[in-house]
């Protein structure tokens, strides 16, 4: 683990511990600097009312220069939210996790972005190519070259 990576994660963790997480986001496990787990709930009216999902972050020694590997946990009975940008294996197609990652972002900033991605969802459905992608997907979502179509 690179020293910059460990220092930065230690600072992020201290901030989480002193200021708490935003509403709907809960830190579940951050016992080392390689993998953190959070739960995410969407507050207020949404397609995901009353549901909680577990989000996993994996960090390499180049964090925060390189992005964390982020996905929803789909083991131990947990499932990924049904969403047009979330595959059933938990992988997420979001530009900020790939080509538009910046060290300006933090673990909490990613959680908040994904929370609002769920909040703004109009229709619960999987990506059109879900089955094909999940059949061949690498273990680490960072190894997928997602193609982002601007649908804003």
């Amino acid at each position: 683990m690179g020293s910059v990576s460990a220092r930065r994660l230690a600072k992020e963790l201290r901030e989480i511990q002193s200021e708490g997480c935003p509403v709907g986001i809960t830190l579940v496990d951050a016992s080392d600097f390689s993998k953190w787990l959070f739960t995410i709930e969407v507050m207020g009216n949404s397609q995901y009312q009353g549901e909680a999902y577990t989000l996993q972050f994996r960090f390499d020694a180049q964090y925060p220069i390189s992005s964390p590997a982020v996905q929803f946990v789909v083991t131990d009975g947990k499932e990924a939210p049904v969403h047009p940008h979330v595959y059933s294996n938990g992988h997420i197609c979001a530009s900020i996790l790939g080509s538009e990652w910046s060290p300006v972002l933090s673990v909490i900033a990613v959680c908040v972005t994904l929370q609002s991605m769920l909040a703004s969802c109009k229709k619960k459905e999987r990506p059109a190519d879900n089955d094909r992608y999940v059949r061949t997907a690498p273990d680490n979502p960072k190894k997928t070259l997602f193609h982002y179509d601007d649908d804003t």
Binding site: C93, F146, T152
Partner: peptide
């Protein structure tokens, strides 16, 4: 076709 900063897009 590059995404905008906030867009979350499909594979």
């Amino acid at each position: 076709h590059l995404p905008s900063a906030s867009s979350l897009l499909t594979f």
